[in-house]
Simulated scan of single mutants.
Amino acid sequence: MLVLKGSEAAARIKKEVQEMVEGLGGHVPTAAIVRVGERPDDLSYERNVMKKIASFGMEARSFAFPESIREGEFQAEFQKINDDPSIDGILLFCPLPRHMNGRTFEELIRPEKDLDGISPVNRARIFAGEKDGFAPCTAEAVIEILKTYQIPMEGKRAVVVGRSMVVGRPLSMLFLKENATVTVCHTKTADLKAVCREADILVAAAGKAGMISGEFVKPGAVVADVGINVDENGALKGDVEWDGLEAAAAAAATPVPGGVGSVTTAVLCRHLAEAAMRKYGAEQAQN
């Protein structure tokens, strides 16, 4: 079974980004990392993202706010970041604290700066199959891994387990864009195992550790594990039982860790470079 390492896709994307940055006439793409509160997973991800952006030759600025900040006050601060011409892209950590309406900020963020595809405008663009919308980075990372390993999607049956707006639904649209035939499954899907066994490409994005066993995988299938779960020992586990894939005769699979997650931040970096290029191109056209 071929192990689909995310590092291969990340390296390819890094080269693309560096070429884009070189074409910006000295402008350094700059991202705003916006966080409310001190959740350990957010802090870890923030460090990872800022390090990754710097390694791609770009800049990231951290904007951290206390969890107790009032929604109106945070909205005013967020709007300042939104309107700052020196900021090319914004990554807003979600979910926001319970006393805030996340929908408000999804609608507020400028689509051209929306690096993780949370704005209604970018979601509409992805569902319309348009090229200029930013898709959620994790969903796009799955496609990038498949492309890196030259795994064909056209005409293939893709089954996505999970229907979130972060992965499942946008990923189904990205598969359609690649001319795959897509089925989206969820907790109410009848005979989930049988549906999964029809897949040429099976994506596990349900957020439940070990939910997909080898019995769900048909021989020769490609499996993408999007799940990030932490077990009682603090180890990362995916939604797929890795040990059962060999017995199921799967053709290829992404590991956890080291698979889709490691490509997600690379996609984020490419979105930042693309946002800067679009802005730079518009400015050049005006001059």
Rank of each mutant, 00 (worst) to 15 (best):
L43W: 01
E107F: 03
L171S: 06
P85K: 07
R157D: 02
F134R: 01
L92C: 11
L24I: 10
P136C: 05
E59W: 10
R47E: 10
G207A: 11
A224H: 00
R39S: 08
A199E: 02
A275W: 05
M211K: 02
L202N: 03
A180Q: 01
R157K: 15
G57S: 12
A10R: 10
V159P: 01
K193E: 15
E112C: 10
G57W: 06
A285I: 00
I126Y: 01
C137E: 06
G117S: 12
I151Y: 04
R103H: 08
F63K: 02
R12Q: 12
R70E: 15
A285C: 02
V217R: 06
E106K: 09
S119Q: 04
Y149M: 11
E67K: 12
Y149H: 12
G220T: 09
G168T: 03
L176G: 09
P40E: 11
V21W: 03
L174C: 00
D191R: 14
V167E: 05
L171T: 07
C185W: 02
V195P: 00
F56L: 06
M277Q: 14
V36G: 02
M58T: 09
M20G: 00
A249N: 14
A32Q: 06
H186E: 10
D239H: 05
K156H: 08
I201R: 07
